[in-house]
């Protein structure tokens, strides 16, 4: 279970969240621009310290302003994938994937590489990869570190429609294969609809609040594979 109580002022807006979501499958996080999606992403990952609140994942306290706990991102077991992938440009794909890999987990790493179809790219430099390949490698790098939760920040928004569908399909498959809970941030409802089994919606106002739908909304279905919902075969 992911529990988030958060109060954080952002300019003239107050982000005031109190939500609980199951740490399983793919959870969507959606909301209009400026609603605080990125702030929530950063607070969960430990890249930004909220003014007050408490964040726990499966009972593991990441942040608690009352008891002054604010874990370093390295100790949070929260993986991140940014919109542009951001593979380390001075390392090969293989070294990127091994950066956070726990020792003795080569089989798991090989499975992720296989699931994301990266075997033929391991010795390439990130600059040589296409946008979709870079994004798959970034997802693999984060998954191989075996996080408790993986945050994906608009991971397909920079890809063209065909590549977007294929990458979303692979995200759905690799989530099912590894079982790593994911939070998928997007401003595109169709992506959320195609991928996620529950949705956190941020409502923007002078005070940003959130609602969680633990069951799919009417019209929200989770196709298997996800690409079917996008017309990708």
């Amino acid at each position: 279970m992911i529990e988030i109580r958060l109060r954080h002022r952002q300019g003239n807006f107050l982000i005031d969240l109190d939500l609980q979501v199951e740490a399983a499958g793919i959870t969507g996080l959606i909301g209009p621009s400026g609603a605080g999606k990125s702030t929530l992403f950063q607070c969960l990952a430990g890249h930004r310290k909220p003014a007050a609140g408490r964040i726990t994942i499966n009972g593991h306290v990441l942040f608690d302003s009352a008891s002054r706990i604010n874990l370093h991102p390295a100790d949070r077991r929260v993986g991140v994938v940014f919109q542009e992938g951001l593979l380390f440009p001075h390392m090969s794909v293989r070294r990127n994937l091994g950066y956070g890999a726990p020792k003795g987990r080569d089989r798991f790493a090989a499975e992720v590489v296989d699931a994301l179809d990266l075997g033929h790219l391991l010795d390439a430099r990130p600059q040589r990869l296409s946008g979709g390949e870079r994004q798959r490698a970034a997802i693999a790098r984060a998954l191989i570190a075996e996080p408790d939760v993986l945050l994906l920040d608009e991971p397909v928004s920079a890809l063209d429609p065909g590549l977007k569908a294929r990458t979303m399909d692979l995200i759905s498959r690799v989530q099912a294969r590894t079982g790593t809970p994911m939070i998928y941030i997007s401003h595109a409802p169709e992506e959320i609809r195609a991928l996620c089994s529950r949705v956190i919606t941020l409502h923007r106002g002078t005070r940003t609040t959130a609602t969680v739908e633990s069951a799919p909304r009417p019209g929200l279905t989770r196709p298997q594979p996800a690409a079917q919902g996008l017309g990708y075969a």
Partner: peptide
């Protein structure tokens, strides 16, 4: 965000500096 990604992969601040920041 390169450094943030490295920290979220479990790297200490020193490791991030030596393996990501310095080469960049």
């Amino acid at each position: 965000r390169y450094e943030q990604a490295a920290r979220s992969l479990g790297a200490s601040d020193l490791k991030v500096f030596l393996t990501v920041t310095l080469p960049l």
